[in-house]
Write a protein that binds this DNA or RNA. Structure first.
Lengths: 184, 184
DNA sequence: CCTCTTTGTGCAACTAGTTGCACAAAGAGG
DNA sequence: CCTCTTTGTGCAACTAGTTGCACAAAGAGG
């Protein structure tokens, strides 16, 4: 139930077409709420039908043509309502942790290379976040909005830092294992 | 595509009935791959139909009766195959981070109480993990299996540590905000 | 001009996960 | 005994997310 609100947030920040949203999801909002272009177009249709957004005037809706949307007051209200509504944290679901647990009983062959690959991916993501931090949050700016967005980026940085450290740990552990098999 | 493998892992560790699995998911495997009892029963049926597990002999299948399953060789092979197969990390999807980003544009009223509540939940989870660590991983034991399982638990501990720190950070930031509204 | 690629929008079918129940068996309390 | 609750198993309908395409418009290259 969060994709519509992710889209509303992005559109409040800046009215956009489906493709522009897709691009922005790839490098901003999508860092903590990813979505494919198909999801986005489908959701834009629903949001428009529900009267929460509307196509910017001066454009006839047609295939293969840019159509930009902006948020209506009802959409802004809905977003504020949702933001203030208490929600439980989703339980974790992480395949790599599960695979390690499985490896404990069926053997570790093959998983080490993937740990290394994940480490590289997370290192790359971390570097990207740090670049964004340097570029978008130079010291001194501290409007409420900046501080909140910086806080969110900080979560991303800290999470990637956790993963790189933990994967490093895991690889060190593997280097110290005597054999490649569990008890199986 | 990981629930069947989570179940296979649990069943290799120890043959169980649906309800026992549900309980074990609530306090062990489920920490990093949660599942409801309905999901588990459905998946047990599929795994049995696929010949990866079987009901322990000496029990006729009937409603309202315990039925325990064990993993067959084909199931163990499938689990080993899956564990060794390279997989991309799933992109992050976190509603709290999204809500903060939304709060940056539609105002922060209402969200602070929920940050506090989440902080408490994560502190409780962290304490639980640490208890498990003390109980199940005393210094000295270091079979391959123990070390891998400890590594997985460590990930849980570090993740909860991250959340408690970050939420503390966020609340400190809120305490310093001059007003309760964004630019809207 | 005419094909070929890129940009942009979208449908349809599928898979995974959630919610809301149903119902049998067994024990608990009168 | 008879109801009432708990334990255990499971179906059905729904929601969210993914995968695989389709196809129009516009620009690129001959």
């Amino acid at each position: 139930m969060s994709l519509p609100h992710a889209i509303l947030t992005a559109l409040v920040e800046k009215p956009s077409s489906g493709l522009e949203l897709t691009r922005r999801f790839d490098r901003s909002i999508g860092y903590f709420w990813s979505a494919t272009h198909q999801q986005i177009y489908r959701e834009l249709g629903k949001l428009e039908a529900d009267g929460l957004i509307r196509a910017l005037p001066g454009q006839q809706p047609a295939r293969g043509q840019k159509k930009s949307y902006e948020v209506l007051p009802a959409g802004r209200d809905e977003l504020a309502r949702w933001t203030a509504t208490s929600q439980d944290p989703k339980p974790l679901r992480d395949a790599m942790l599960l695979r390690l647990r499985a490896a404990a009983v069926v053997g570790t062959s093959g998983i080490e290379a993937d740990l290394r690959r994940h480490l590289e991916l997370h290192e790359r993501q971390l570097a990207e976040y740090k670049e964004i931090e340097e570029r978008d949050f130079p010291p001194g700016r501290d409007s409420t909005e900046d501080r909140l967005r910086h806080l969110v980026l900080r979560a991303g940085i800290d999470l990637e830092t956790f993963w790189t450290q933990w994967l490093g740990h895991a690889l060190a552990e593997f280097a110290g294992l005597t054999d490649g098999e569990g008890r199986g």
